[in-house]
């Protein structure tokens, strides 16, 4: 839940990432950035939807709160990032949640498609960890301090 305006917010971030190593790196980078965020990780597109909709194992709203921001990988087996994005943005109950695509691809087609489907940002995954930490810092700066999130 966002804090009062003007104060640093603690964000509920849902990380959708099928690659465990990448998930670990991302979690560590966020921790290293010393940001007070609650990072929830799911390992597939279907899980992401279930989490957001509080379905199946994610029915407990205390344990699995609705995310303020979603970090979404594109290349995933079964339900991929584009499909998650499409479903979410076509559901009026959840379309307000900003989705930031986090992908290895720097391909303009992927970037364009993401924004077309309603992504609020597109962050290419840096190969170098230090670079990635830099990116996470910028991310925090933007989403936690500069930007204002929608209210439910």
């Amino acid at each position: 839940m966002p804090e009062e305006a003007g104060r640093i917010q603690t964000l509920n971030i849902l990380l959708v990432e099928d690659n465990e190593a990448d998930a670990k790196i991302t979690v560590r980078a966020f921790n290293r950035a010393e940001s007070k965020n609650n990072l929830y990780v799911v390992y597939g597109g279907q899980d992401a939807l279930d989490f957001i909709y509080h379905l199946k194992g994610y029915a407990d709203k205390e344990r699995f709160p609705s995310p303020d921001i979603i970090l979404l990988d594109i290349n995933m087996p079964k339900v991929n990032g584009f499909q998650v994005l499409e479903k979410l943005k076509s559901n009026s109950g959840y379309s307000y949640i900003p989705v930031i695509v986090l992908s290895s691809s720097k391909n303009p087609e992927d970037i364009n498609r993401s924004y077309k489907l309603g992504a609020s940002g597109y962050i290419p995954k840096a190969v170098d960890y230090e670079d990635f930490v830099e990116i996470v810092n910028v991310f925090n700066l933007y989403w936690k301090i500069v930007s204002r999130l929608p209210r439910k």
Partner: peptide
């Protein structure tokens, strides 16, 4: 080439990151 290059990135990132860890 595209796919391979793309897929090569994830392990590279892992190597880079975990060596940093």
């Amino acid at each position: 080439v595209y796919t391979v290059s793309h897929d090569l990135r994830a392990p590279l990132r892992a190597i880079s990151s975990f060596s940093t860890f």
